[in-house]
């Protein structure tokens, strides 16, 4: 088996041609392609994770806000209820007072009326008694003179 220089040279050339071809058309493009895809996937995953974390945060925030709003609403309703109760109690109290006042006044009025009626009756009685007495004794009683006397008498009797 002799060594043939032309075969060696041609084989080296073949290998080099194949090397340059495969490097340019096979290894470099495919490796670059795979690296690019790897980077893209890594980026996508990272972005997705970031976004997920952010949305998780927002969700928590909104939940908190919602809960706060709920609480606040309850508080508002409660305070308004209290105020309303106060007002109604106030109103009732005022009404009661007014009613009492009216009753009181009515009582006083009636008392006064009674007093006046009593006085009138007394006066009537006095007049009547004077009239009867003057008829009886045929003598004009001096109204002014005896008025005091009769009134005194009537009071003692307790009309």
């Amino acid at each position: 088996m002799e060594i043939s220089i032309p075969v060696i040279v041609v084989t080296i050339m073949n290998t080099l041609v194949l090397y340059f071809f495969l490097k340019k058309k096979f290894f470099v493009p495919v490796t670059d392609f795979m690296n690019e895809r790897k980077n893209k996937i890594e980026n996508d995953i990272n972005n997705a994770q970031l976004q997920l974390a952010e949305s998780e945060k927002l969700k928590k925030e909104y939940k908190e806000k919602l809960m706060n709003a709920d609480d606040e609403g309850k508080k508002i309703i409660h305070s308004h209820k209290l105020k309303a109760e106060e007002i109604s109690e106030d109103i009732i109290l005022k009404a009661k007072k007014e009613a009492e006042l009216i009753i009181e006044r009515a009582k006083i009025d009636s008392e006064r009326e009674k007093e006046r009626a009593k006085d009138e009756i007394k006066n009537e009685i006095i007049n009547l008694s004077i009239m009867t007495a003057s008829k009886l004794i045929n003598e004009e009683l001096d109204l002014n003179k005896h008025h005091e006397l009769i009134k005194d008498f009537i009071e003692k009797v307790g009309v």
């Binding site: 060594i3 043939s4 220089i5 075969v7 060696i8 040279v9 084989t11 080296i12 290998t15 080099l16």
Partner: peptide, 12 residues
């Protein structure tokens, strides 16, 4: 199996 070919590859 041609030694020239194997030698060429080894020389590279």
């Amino acid at each position: 199996t041609d030694y020239s070919v194997a030698l060429a590859l080894a020389l590279i």
